[in-house]
Structures are given as C-alpha cells and as structure tokens.
Simulated assay, not measured.
Amino acid sequence: MSSPVHYVTVSIPADEIIGYLWADDTTVDLIHRSASSSDAYEAGAEWYRKAQDARERGLAPLGVLTLLSREPGAGPVTGATGVDAVKDLARTVTPEDDRRLLDQLDRDNAAAWRELGDAYDALTDEDRTITWGGGRTSARGVTHVPFPRYSEPLKRVVRALSGVGAVTPEHRWADNPLPEPAPDGRLSPADAVRAATTIVRGEHFSDGTIAQAVGNGLLHAVVTALRAWYAEQRATAPGVCRFCGGSPAAHVAFHAHRGLVVFFGSRRTDGPMCLTCGLAVYRAYTTHTLCMGWWSPLSLFVFAPLTLVRNLLAVRTVKRLPAPGPGTLGPRYDPGVPVHRRPRAYVALVPALWVLFMVVTGLTGLTGGA
C-alpha cells in the first residue's frame, strides 16, 4: 500500500494543468499529466527544476511544496492517499484536451480530406496483405532485422493521415496507451487523432505498428472516425451542402410520407443543401409520397397533401440557388428526371380518381333523389 503523500497542482498561464508536484518524507517529484499539450509538458521541466533547486538548498520535501505553492500557477498543498492516487489524477483527460487535438486537424483543406477518402476507399484486400522481408541470417552470420513491406496504396493512406493533420506533436504518444475502439468498433474523433499519431510515429521506432493497426481494424476505425468528423464539420458550416460539401447552399427540410391502412409514417431530411442535392432529395421524397402516401384515411386527406405542399415550398428556396461549386465531401446526388416523368408518381391518380368517383356518385345520388 502506498504511503500518504502531498501534492501541488501546477498549471501554465492558459490554465491548463501541467501536472502534479508530489512529495513524501524523502522525495519530491513531478508527474506530468499524460494528456497535456506540448507547451505544458515543456513548462513542467521548469517546475521540476525549481523543486530540485529548493531541495538542494536543504528544504524538506513538504517544505518544497509549501514554497512552490506560493508561485503563480500553483495550487495549494493537498494530501493524497499515495502516489497512485496522484497518478490517477494525471491520467485525467478533459474536453479541452480533446478540443486541442481536434484543432490540429486541417478542416479547411478540402483537397487533403478528399485525398484521405479516395486513398482509403481505393484499398483492396491485396493492399492490406502485408508481407515481411529480412529475418534471414547470411553466410557470414549476420541476421537482417525483419521489416514489413507495405503496398503503395497503403502508404498513400498513411501519408493522407498526415495531410489532414491527424499526426500531431500535440499528442505525446510514447507516454500514453494506444486508444482502443469501443465494442461497436468506433473511435471518438480525438482518439482517432491519438491513434493516428501513435500508428504513424510508432512505425519509425517499432516496425509493424501500421501492420498491426491494419490487422486489428484500428486503422479502419481511425479513418472512419476522421471522415465522419470532417463530414459533420462541413455539414454544419454555413452555406455548405451537407451531402456534397458544395456551395452555395440553403437550409431546407424535405419530407416523405407513407400511409399503410391504419398506420402511417414520415421521414424528414433537413440541413444546408445545394441546388443539385436539394433537387435530388425533393424529387425522391415527393415521388415516394405520391406513390405510398395515400393508403390510410388520415394520410389521404391530411398528411400526404400537407407533405406535398411543404416540399413544394422548400424546393422553391433551393431553385433560387445558382449551380454549386466543386464538392468537398464526395459525389453529388443525381437529381434524376423531374417528378412528372417518374411513373411511380402517377400512383397518386388512384386515390384521386377514387375520391372523384365518390364525389360524383354522391352528387348523382342527390340529383336522383331530388
């Protein structure tokens, strides 16, 4: 069991915690916070130097902490059950740590993100199959160190990770464990940056780090998380289409309705859309409603007509937009032919003719009765 210790929290001027100076009866040391920035890590060396200088002047360990607790950026002297408790504090990861890593991503470099997507999508099973060279002993008794042979398409993906800023000195990968995907195979965007940095930089010190990430699915999780993050950033950016990343775009909502005898359901897609993608969604949803939106009483008289009117109003906004510029998120939706040229849309004539028939029959009955 660890003996009780005392510690002082030390921070840089930006209020980021550097780490914890701790002391017991004989020792004063610094535990860096593992998720801190590179600036904080470098500042920790100065705090450690101050502690050692005070110790060399003859101050007892607890006296060192008391002295340094009066310095700007230092917290009060606090007790802990042991060094392990202080180490647990140092392993804390804050939302600010995640934001700092995400700030390293080059969200404005559309070409780099397109390259990452294209490079990864082009990978084949053969590209992911990694063979090893070396490992043989020559006639003179010299053994060559084994090394992985990566395909050029896989190397392209690795370069693309650096291109989008996912390999960053802001993550001290050697001091932190390799992130693991959740049970569903997902990584948070910040953990994707941590993993990408560890995978790419770790390969320089331990051959096969990339091979292991390919084999266990970590590389897939990294690229998937990064692409999803970028798509979300572009989708929420003003004036950028949520589907293709082109601009200009307008914020609109399209609906589709389906009636099933006594049940019915609706679907909504909203967000910024360019002229091309907006027309595609409008035509698809309106055609679906014209075909499937009538087959319950409430759908026939309320929901289907209301859905069609709402879509007509929304598409007017989209049609005012000029043709969009190049997309940055991927292929642009194909609007296809107009609604009136789609055979499924004319299914709507069935309930319309039925209603007309009922009206005419009712009027005829009234006339005959008169």
Rank of each mutant, 00 (worst) to 15 (best):
S296A: 11
F205L: 15
P181C: 13
T9P: 01
T26S: 12
P148D: 09
S162L: 07
P272Q: 15
L161T: 11
Y230R: 15
V93Y: 04
L226N: 05
R49C: 01
R149H: 07
L123P: 00
P272C: 15
E152T: 15
A352V: 05
A211V: 11
Q104I: 04
I31A: 12
W229H: 15
L356K: 03
L105F: 08
W22H: 05
A60P: 00
R149S: 05
H220A: 04
A14N: 04
A43D: 09
G82V: 05
A40V: 06
D24H: 05
W47S: 08
K155L: 13
S36Y: 09
P238I: 05
R186T: 15
V167H: 00
T129H: 13
W295D: 01
V157G: 04
R344E: 11
R341L: 15
A112Y: 11
Y7T: 05
G117T: 14
P248D: 10
V167W: 00
A160V: 04
L67D: 05
I199G: 00
F301K: 12
G63F: 09
S36I: 14
V261G: 05
S138T: 13
Q233I: 12
A280Q: 01
T66N: 02
P76C: 12
D88T: 10
P272K: 13
V145Q: 10
R186M: 13
M292S: 08
G365R: 13
P95E: 13
P183E: 10
D118L: 04
G271R: 09
D84A: 14
P181E: 13
L260W: 14
P324H: 07
G73Q: 05
R149E: 01
T129Q: 13
F147C: 01
P61C: 08
G362M: 02
M292H: 14
L65H: 02
V214E: 03
R344Y: 12
A304N: 06
A45R: 09
G141S: 07
L260E: 10
E170N: 11
G117F: 01
H340Y: 10
G336V: 12
L290Q: 00
G19K: 10
H255W: 01
F147R: 09
G82N: 02
H251T: 05
A166H: 07
S11H: 08
G239W: 02
S38D: 06
V167Q: 03
G362E: 00
W173H: 11
T94R: 09
T27S: 08
T286A: 08
W295Q: 01
P61D: 04
T367I: 14
R91P: 01
F147L: 07
W354V: 14
I130H: 03
D98V: 11
L59T: 02
L349S: 03
W132H: 10
V318H: 06
R107S: 11
R234G: 12
V5S: 07
R33H: 03
P343G: 14
W47E: 08
Y48Q: 10
S38I: 13
R341E: 10
H204L: 10
G63D: 10
V262P: 03
